[in-house]
Design a protein around this nucleic acid. Structure first.
Length: 270
DNA sequence: CGCACCCCCTGCCGGC
DNA sequence: TGCCGGCAGGGGGTGC
């Protein structure tokens, strides 16, 4: 579910609400998330103060007052919801974090593809540090051009590879390539410098607009307070197979690239 | 190196 | 109506 704009929306909402607060209690109702929730997880969080909340790619990171880092990934169906008080536990509410003022942060994740761990700096770097984050780092046309040289893979697969560009997923890569006028199957290594420039510009514009609209809610994405996003209303190609292109009217085509549905306009994208 | 094909898991939708 | 297959915003591993 959540890609960079959704995680950024959650970060901007929850950051001011969480930073400075101490964690009073933690309950893990189901440890079967990706990689498993470690036995000592609750103990490492309990009593700690949240010094900062940040993001890298699709990871959320809370810096703790003992120098360790609380790492969160929402997978496909994860939600992080801050509530006033502890209500009845719903199905798939796997982790409850009670704050010093009584508010509760619930991690809800039907598919359990998310991840939750307390890690040190080295492990944090190993898990999140590889790719260029278009908001945190400087993703330039020159950097993308260099990254794509001699790569035989498609530009879509390359942009979705978190070790190269961090934070983009299936929705946003489709939308970015439409706005850049580049077909998703194009070989990365064959792209011109100008095409790389258009992709970088489109990346920054799409992400900025998506964040401004609170992310994309296709089925179940919600921000930290349970609110849906509105960027799905601005999607040009994602999930629009057969529908007319919003720019030229040509039907949107769909094709599978490295196992993921891809959508493009054969007239607007070359 | 790149990709096809597995896995993880639940929910939803369309076809029969 | 109910069942079944396919698909869904994530990542990881293996083997060719």
């Amino acid at each position: 579910m959540p890609e960079l704009p959704e995680i950024e929306t959650i970060l901007r909402g929850l950051g001011p609400a969480l930073v400075g607060h101490r964690i009073a209690a933690v309950t893990v109702h189901d440890h079967r998330l990706r990689g498993g929730v470690a036995a000592g997880f609750a103990g490492r969080l309990t009593g700690r103060r949240i010094e900062a909340l940040g993001r890298r790619g699709k990871y959320l990171l809370a810096t703790l007052d003992d120098g360790w880092c609380w790492l969160m990934h929402l997978g496909m169906s994860g939600q992080l919801l801050l509530g006033a008080a502890d209500g009845p536990a719903r199905p798939h509410d796997h982790v409850h974090v009670i704050l010093d003022d009584g508010r509760i942060l619930v991690y809800h994740d039907p598919r359990r593809f998310g991840r939750m761990a307390v890690v040190d700096r080295a492990q944090l770097e190993r898990e999140t540090g590889a790719g260029i984050d278009p908001l945190v780092d400087d993703l330039t046309a020159a950097a993308l051009f260099q990254m794509t040289r001699r790569r035989r893979t498609s530009i879509k697969a390359l942009l979705m590879d978190q070790r190269r560009v961090a934070g983009l997923g299936n929705i946003y890569v489709n939308e970015i390539l439409f706005r850049a006028g580049v077909r998703p199957r194009r070989r990365a290594g064959m792209l011109t410098r100008a095409a790389c420039g258009r992709i970088v510009t489109a990346t920054h514009r799409v992400l900025a607009e998506a964040i401004r609209r609170g992310g994309s809610s296709i089925a179940d994405y919600r921000d930290g307070f349970g609110r849906a996003g509105r960027f799905q209303q601005r999607h040009r190609v994602y999930d629009r197979a057969g529908l007319p292109c919003r720019r030229c009217g040509h039907p949107i085509r769909t094709v599978v690239i490295v196992g993921r549905s891809s959508f493009y306009c054969a007239r607007c994208q070359r």
